[in-house]
């Protein structure tokens, strides 16, 4: 059966077929949830915020003109709503939302926090969950949602080069950690 595009579903929703919106919800809920969980670090908050985001997106559907992909537009809502939630919780966002120039040192920051394991996949997943929010969001959008760096820059409202720098920095930091922990098996 032909898979309907986001735009086709949204056109149907706009024509009054509200129930079709469930297809959109099913399509994006888990990916957006993963991103929110990494940003908010709390499952319950993540689910609550995600629910708000879907309702907010539904109520603003008329303002979505289809110039960008729905996913970019929706993730922008998710990202901004999460930032609002973080600031409303009075967390020290200035410290956690590390700027691109800030020193980024996973080794010293996460050495003691990441449980010892020989399972590389588990180790990387645990470490990604401990990345500063913006880095985790980029990893999430790039790998899970398969957004391009240009699309990520639109979601996060930062430059494409900043997205790339943060993506490379995250990978390099993870690489340094697995090398340090001898998790990468000898192949040569």
């Amino acid at each position: 059966m032909k898979k309907l595009s986001d735009q086709e579903i949204l056109d149907s929703v706009k024509l009054g077929n509200q129930s079709d919106y469930a297809i959109i919800v099913d399509r994006y809920k888990n990916k957006a949830f993963s991103m929110l969980k990494r940003m908010l670090r709390n499952e319950q908050d993540a689910e609550e915020v995600l629910q708000d985001c879907f309702i907010k997106a539904y109520n603003s559907l008329n303002s979505f003109k289809g110039e960008a992909k729905f996913s970019t537009w929706f993730y922008r809502i998710v990202y901004n709503t999460a930032l609002t939630r973080i600031s409303s919780k009075k967390r020290k966002t200035e410290n956690e939302m590390t700027s691109i120039e800030d020193h980024f040192d996973l080794k010293s920051d996460y050495d003691s926090k990441v449980p010892e394991t020989n399972d590389m996949s588990k180790f990387i997943k645990d470490t990604v969950n401990r990345l500063p929010e913006r880095y985790a969001v980029i990893i999430n959008l790039f790998y899970l949602d398969e957004l391009s760096c240009e699309e990520i820059s639109k979601v996060m409202n930062i430059s494409v080069s900043n997205v790339k720098v943060m993506l490379y920095r995250s990978r390099s930091a993870l690489k340094d950690l697995i090398v340090q922990k001898n998790l990468v098996e000898e192949i040569l």
Partner: peptide, 30 residues
């Protein structure tokens, strides 16, 4: 190889799952 391995592992990241009644909760909220 180490960097490539990180890239491959990240490509295999699995998405987390929301609760089973999530969609119906959203739809009832609309």
């Amino acid at each position: 190889y180490a960097l490539k391995r990180v890239h491959n592992e990240l490509s295999d990241l699995q998405e987390d799952n929301v609760s089973t009644n999530f969609t119906s909760l959203v739809m009832s909220g609309l």
